[in-house]
């Protein structure tokens, strides 16, 4: 465990090397909140609620979901497949770590960086611009959301790692990347609003992990979802994460023997 903590730490450190980049990231997070403040202010325009959300709840949801969206798990599939094609994946094979856990740790390390900025942005906006955020007063809900974020990130990294290692067999995983993008768009309601789907389809989607990766934790933290929904989501997510991890390990062990390392 300690070695993966160190991997996470080193990737956190790489994020904060350049002061200019760090300053711009901080400004962009604050700007995002201010932009949301202005945009949603215009949409609400004196109304108490929109779609069941109060103004504060909407802003809080926006800040949290944009932080969760900033956790770059999709990059894992691209990096893994490119390294396999280019031969540099060997780097992960000669050091005493499991590549999946290595990529998990590096994603958490980078996510820590964005988490800090999101928290700073939320505090800065609350103090400087009097933008009130709304968070759940139930610590159990916050804790549940925290665990859900970890499980969700674990699932998403495993999912993208799996797509990446398909490059051992297929070399180019462009089709799989496109396909998974479409699946996620559909399952999260980005392509078609989930409310428009038939009841049965929605019931099936409830068992898929994607809505519990971003949407549900943000709803729990802002107090917009019940803890019982969170418990169901977390259970589903943990099952998916465990299944995905097993699939990854099995596939990796089967396919890595095909690795030619590039060059003779």
């Amino acid at each position: 465990m300690r070695k993966y903590m160190e991997v996470a730490k080193i990737f956190f450190k790489t994020q904060i090397v350049y002061r200019f980049d760090v300053s711009l990231t901080a400004l962009s997070v604050i700007w995002r909140v201010m932009f949301a403040y202005i945009m949603w202010g215009a949409i609400f325009d004196g109304r108490e609620t929109v779609g069941g959300f109060t103004f504060q709840a909407m802003l809080s949801y926006y800040v949290i979901s944009s932080f969760l969206a900033a956790i770059d798990t999709a990059g894992v599939s691209g990096e893994v497949s490119a390294r396999i094609r280019g031969g540099t994946f060997a780097k992960y094979m000669v050091i005493p770590t499991h590549p999946l856990k290595h990529f998990l740790a590096q994603t958490f390390g980078a996510a820590g960086y964005y988490a800090i900025f999101s928290i700073i942005a939320a505090i800065a906006c609350a103090l400087l611009f009097r933008v009130d955020m709304m968070f759940s007063e139930n610590p159990a809900q916050i804790a549940l959301a925290g665990v859900m974020i970890i499980a969700g990130t674990t699932f998403m990294v495993s999912y993208h790692f799996f797509i990446g290692i398909l490059a051992f067999k297929f070399q180019d995983v462009g089709f799989f990347l496109h396909l998974q993008g479409s699946v996620i768009e559909f399952a999260t309601g980005a392509a078609v609003p989930l409310a428009l789907l038939p009841v049965n389809a929605r019931a099936v989607l409830r068992f898929l992990p994607f809505t519990y990766v971003t949407y549900m934790p943000a709803m729990l933290i802002t107090g917009q979802a019940e803890a019982s929904e969170g418990v169901f989501g977390l259970s589903a997510l943990c099952c998916w994460a465990a299944v995905m991890a097993v699939i990854c390990c099995f596939t990796y062990n089967r396919l890595r023997v095909r690795f030619d390392g590039v060059g003779i």
Partner: peptide, 30 residues
């Protein structure tokens, strides 16, 4: 893997953005 090491002249294990000591620390834990 803990009993051997490999150094390739054209490939690096060091983190370019960080200091050598940061990579040494990582290797200590790995």
């Amino acid at each position: 893997k803990k009993q051997y090491a490999v150094v390739m002249g054209q490939k690096s294990q060091l983190f370019f953005e960080l200091t050598p000591m940061d990579t040494f620390r990582l290797f200590k834990e790995l």
